[in-house]
Amino acid sequence: MYAFEFHRASDIDDALKQLGADDEAQLIAGGQTLLQSLRQRLAMPSTLVDLGGLTELAGIERDGDALNIGAMTRHADVAGAAAVHDAIPALAVLAGGIGDAQVRNMGTLGGSIANNDPAADYPAGLVGLGATVVTTEREIAADDFFTGMFETALGEHELILGVRFPVPRRAGYVKFPQPASRYVLVSVMVAETDEGVRVAVSGAGPCVFRVPEMERALAADFRPEALDGIRVDPGGLNEDLHATPEYRAHLVGVIARRAVAAALS
């Protein structure tokens, strides 16, 4: 790690003030990704503004047809919450499969989506469920929030307060992990909502994406078989040691069918 200052924010205003005072300051939520970047000397913040004390940002609440989850809610709490199991069991499955038990005990929803790692689980979850990101400045639809690899619509001095997940009629999430890191190789969230069917894919491309052809097919017939024959173009998909673009494209189909089956089970 390079040297930095550490400031534990006392409240949201304090965090924003610290962030505004120093262009090189960076927020730290759970730190499960950031710490590794720091240790590898891949990140060089001047100050870390720790959100760990902001308990007001942690919590899960059912609000009518939506589930509100605070930005500082740990993955383990999302995975274990009765409210999540009742409303969106697929979201509990997603949170329960992030990293490992220790990572889930520290890592947060806000930290994960602000980082927008192409191999993270939550982006598919938010986009697939048609969620809305609530910040200190505005509300951003998930479709507009994730803008590119490690990039989001967040402004420099904008802080995520939480995410509002509309409760779907049914949803399924399946992850095929990268064998070494256990990050997402390909994962798919499929949801049938009042507004229609959504299919969102993490891991396969540089950023989460939806598959309209699958959404149309499932809107007509919400069964795994409805996806047979739909091919995803490998062009532009990620290539690394663990998967070729062709394999990732193939897996999108396989995992999407399994996500539909999970939604139906």
Partner: peptide, 22 residues
């Protein structure tokens, strides 16, 4: 699971962390 992989042309170790070495 396990493979130590080098890029033959550059000699760079591709599997240099637990993120890639299973």
């Amino acid at each position: 699971l396990e493979a130590c992989v080098y890029d033959d042309a550059s000699g760079q170790l591709v599997t240099g962390t637990y993120m890639d070495y299973t």
